[in-house]
Nucleic acid binder design. Structure first.
Lengths: 376, 376
DNA sequence: TTGTAGGCGTTATCAT
DNA sequence: ATGATAACGCCTACAA
């Protein structure tokens, strides 16, 4: 017990953790034997193996991932960057990624760009320096060019985008079919008898908002309705801008009888404003949003919204990453995975007697189970 | 033309990243010089330094954190473990941690225990193997003993608990003054004229729920009201159990005129049930919750709730970690940081004409700005 | 089945 | 002001 370990070049008296060399010395075998016993190599005596494992447990040995990664030139770290972690969407996607990654032996380094392209660049550099095995990213709102991601490619680090991607670049990406979600929602509003459907949109340089608008337009066209620019407002889709937008729409000579918002916060704002003006939802104005945030089931009436399959997106993103790793640069062809959204029809868009989506209820009930607000 | 080395397209040739050795060779100097130039050492010629930096930029050199950490025996990785990342509370705390950590040059490895001690243990081992510089953790719901955390201490890795801690152990921790939050809330309900205040509580083996209950009891005692066991129900505080609990309370011979819930989901359930029975809030039953979730400002009436200073908690947790690092094991005394909660009084507990908390509004307005639901 | 030795990229300690 | 060299802990040809 009194036998102290003497580090030849130890900087100070800091207690070093137990290493394979320590185990080897203690057992009087070589480090190779230790290494093989621990990694369950085939050519290893069962007796020695047991002895090694036992000693390892006794001395509380923990393998040093850093050293292994350095030696192998391959770490088990995975970089994940989101604009921010708060809010249901990104938190759920990260949850999906982390769960899948953890199961596959990867540790997730999480970072946020805070919607700032400068921070995004810094984070990217930092992840590269950490020698991550891959980078999964949803770009910031202020990102408009691709060149900092080029660097990642130069370093041969697998790169997968999710949800918010850079259009026009051939990249690996997992996205939601935003167009289909918007199309289905708008068609639903039209099926409810609405004729002047307005749209609260987001910044059009972002793929998600561009396609949500497109789906809206496509549905109108399918019904032979000409788009009316005065019914289309663009903002950052906060509650506040939702209120303002709704007010502006009501002031039109011909106000809308329905609003499809590209986000749930804005549609909440719209709802608040309509109530404050004494208008009824959905009788006077029907409402539908996008994201299926928790708040949609709390308002009165509850809000129709498009669910984005957050967790599936996380899983799919990680899966795409593992496929890239296995492909090992064999195929340079980038892959796109497109997830199908799911419209949840609720009271805010359901006019009496008309129900064009009877198949929704069971899924929703199922989803609600998982959407319990946890902790408290 | 044949003499060219095709680094890019060589199939079986894994392209190694640029290292300090490459820079040294290219410039015809030693690695020591490179290292010093890059780390801004004092004894380095300004000319050589410039040359090194220039070449580094040109060749897209990125320092290898793994190698540096291995050599120095100290990484810039920080382990953060939460029960789950979804939901406002933990997401905000993690946001606070990540922001502070990033500023200080740390990368955050985020993992979830999913409320499972077994996973918690695995994660802990994994973080140790990743050679993290510290571990910040909020324990899972199913954690009742401390011994897996002992291992962390044995490895001399700084350990800080936040919010959910293990009582009875002398540990570093950042917690909310749950008792004070509950006390203040209950006193507020009593000040509104309520005389039979019920309590929806959580699992009492968790510090947070134990203290919320205690604050409730203390407030009752201060008003000379004897606690009534039939008014105190315990559950996991989901929306569903909130509904059930409220129903049970209404069936009492003497139903309550107010409910203080240890969580916001449960109080939402209570609200739903009261409405379905045609009872008015707050006139018939006043309601107050805990956590100040986003939903509290969406319901009708809006819900009174206790804000937990999520982001401050994250910042404080990281700060405590850095203090431990600087202390360098000098002082073994563990520190506890206690944050003060903030009660937000809203319509669900405000009976007409009585307002015992006029100072709330400005802060709330301020907070609301930041609580915009983002994305979409 | 086991051992030897070299090196992954960096930094710290010597020396020049 | 600059170099040579030895670790950090692990893996893996190549020997034995």
């Amino acid at each position: 017990m009194a036998a102290r370990r003497h580090a030849k070049n130890a900087p100070s008296e800091a207690v070093r953790p137990v290493s394979m060399a320590d185990l080897a010395r203690e057992l009087g075998v070589s480090m190779t034997t230790i290494s093989r016993a621990l990694s369950d190599h085939h050519s290893i005596g069962p007796a020695t193996k047991q002895a090694v494992l036992k000693l390892a447990k006794k001395l509380n040995y923990q393998p040093n991932h850093l050293a292994a990664a350095l030696r192998k030139g391959k770490s088990k770290l995975l970089g994940v960057m989101v604009p921010y972690i708060e809010g249901r969407f990104f938190a759920s996607v990260v949850h999906g990624i982390e769960t899948a990654a953890s199961k596959a032996g990867y540790s997730v380094i999480m970072c946020q760009s805070n919607e700032d392209v400068v921070q995004e660049r810094k984070n990217l550099d930092n992840l590269l320096r950490a020698q991550v095995a891959g980078i999964l990213v949803s770009v910031s709102r202020s990102t408009t060019d691709f060149h900092h991601f080029e660097k990642v490619r130069k370093h041969h680090v697998p790169l997968v985008f999710f949800d918010r991607i850079l259009e026009g670049n051939d990249v690996n990406a997992v996205v939601l079919n935003d167009r289909a979600g918007a199309y289905q929602t708008t068609k639903h509003l039209l099926a409810q008898g609405c004729r002047r459907v307005a749209h609260l949109g987001g910044p059009l340089h972002m793929n998600i908002y561009k396609y949500r608008r497109q789906g809206y337009l496509d549905a109108l066209q399918d019904h032979g309705i000409a788009p009316d620019e005065s019914l289309m407002l663009y903002s950052n889709l906060t509650v506040e801008t939702g209120r303002e937008g709704m007010a502006q729409l009501l002031d039109l000579p011909e106000p809308p009888d329905a609003v499809f918002s590209a986000g749930d916060s804005a549609v909440l704002g719209a709802l608040q404003l309509l109530k404050s003006r004494g208008l009824r939802v959905p009788e006077d104005v029907a409402l539908a949003g996008f994201s299926n945030e928790a708040l949609t089931t709390v308002t009165e009436p509850q809000l129709t919204s498009v669910d984005q399959r957050c967790e599936e997106m996380g899983q799919a993103t990680f899966r795409l990453f593992t496929e890239l790793v296995e492909a090992e640069g064999a195929a340079f062809s980038n892959r796109q995975v497109v997830l199908q959204p799911q419209l949840f029809v609720r009271a805010s868009s359901l006019r009496s007697g008309v129900d064009d989506s009877p198949e929704i209820s069971p899924q929703e009930r199922e989803l609600q189970k998982h959407r319990v607000l946890r902790r408290n």
